[in-house]
């Protein structure tokens, strides 16, 4: 166990960003980096990183490359369950590649970036976004067909090839071409099934990138999910048009027909139905809002057409 960077807190306490290295390095030996907890409200990713590390402990002698696991990049946020880096109030996932002489989160971003640079494959583990439940899926950059192909082995339901947003250049994933982001579960919560699926997906990916032979997988690869690759045009954001309380009538990954009722927005005072929200397409529900308070424009679901 190595501290990539150790930062002092004003009270004298110290925080360490931990790296656990499995396998032996050397010239030409491939290295994979697995990073979790960039946001403190995604405990699922942190749990999966630890599960993967435990599995690697048992098979370390069979690794043909190096696997670096960074179980938590934002430990202070994880301590408090907050998305942002506390006190500085900044989203670590908007600070990359960081600064060597900047404030604490910038230095952490820089240390992580410097330590990971040169890895043949980077895998970022997240949970679901706050207030949502999401199907297990991988995200890769739009037009990165190699990453999309690779992510097919991640034991996910879906591979989403996304167009980068306006702030993409400052994200962790953007720093390392080909990065695969794995998400799923419920925001700021753990879900054992999701954790197991993602753990197996990550270990299977290690066999695809050449640091672990397929025969040495601790489970049979044929049990993996076979995902489909979708692009932004296939993913529909469904938004509430009235402000109130959103009550969903479906669950994640259920099939829906175009025009089917996804849920209702009710008046928060008298409970009267103000809006019925319909599916814009035939497909499956990728994400459901789990916190009922919505404004006009709040996303309540994502539906993907397959």
């Amino acid at each position: 166990m190595t501290a990539v960077i150790q930062v002092e807190l004003p009270s004298g306490d110290e925080l360490a960003i931990i790296r656990r290295r499995f396998g032996r390095g050397g010239p030409g030996v491939p290295r994979v980096a697995i990073v979790a907890g960039i946001r403190g409200d995604a405990p699922e990713g942190i749990r999966v990183a630890h599960q993967v590390a435990r599995a690697l402990e048992a098979i370390e002698d069979r690794l043909t490359g190096v696997v670096d696991v960074y179980p938590c990049a934002n430990p202070l946020g994880a301590h408090q369950g907050t998305r942002v880096w506390p006190f500085f109030d900044v989203d670590l996932n908007r600070r990359f590649p960081g600064k060597e002489s900047g404030h604490q989160p910038d230095r952490v971003a820089h240390a992580l970036y410097s330590d990971i640079r040169g890895a043949v494959q980077v895998i970022e583990l997240r949970g679901a976004r706050e207030a949502f439940s999401e199907v297990i899926h991988a995200q890769v950059r739009e037009r990165d067909t190699a990453a999309a192909e690779f992510a097919m082995g991640a034991n996910v339901a879906l591979v989403w090839a996304r167009k980068p947003g306006p702030a993409a250049t400052q994200t962790f994933a953007h720093q390392f071409p080909g990065t695969i982001v794995l998400e799923g579960g419920t925001g700021n919560r753990l879900n054992a099934e999701v954790g197991k699926d993602l753990e197996e997906g990550v270990i299977h990916l290690l066999s695809q990138v050449g640091v672990l032979a397929e025969k040495d997988l601790p489970f049979h690869w044929a049990a993996m999910s076979r995902p489909v690759v979708v692009n932004d045009a296939q993913v529909f954001r469904v938004r509430a048009e009235r402000s109130g309380l959103f009550l969903p009538e479906f669950t994640v990954w259920s099939e829906v027909e175009k025009g089917a009722t996804l849920g209702h927005v009710i008046d928060p005072e008298d409970g009267a139905v103000m809006e019925t929200i319909l599916s814009p397409t035939t497909g499956r529900v990728m994400a459901v809002r789990e916190h009922p308070v919505v404004y006009s424009g709040t996303m309540v679901a994502r539906v993907v057409t397959l």
């Binding site: 402000s243 309380l245 404004y295 006009s296």
Partner: peptide
């Protein structure tokens, strides 16, 4: 004074 945008706010 004019209101250039408004939106209903749940509970308020």
């Amino acid at each position: 004074m004019s209101v250039v945008f408004s939106i209903d706010a749940p509970y308020r």
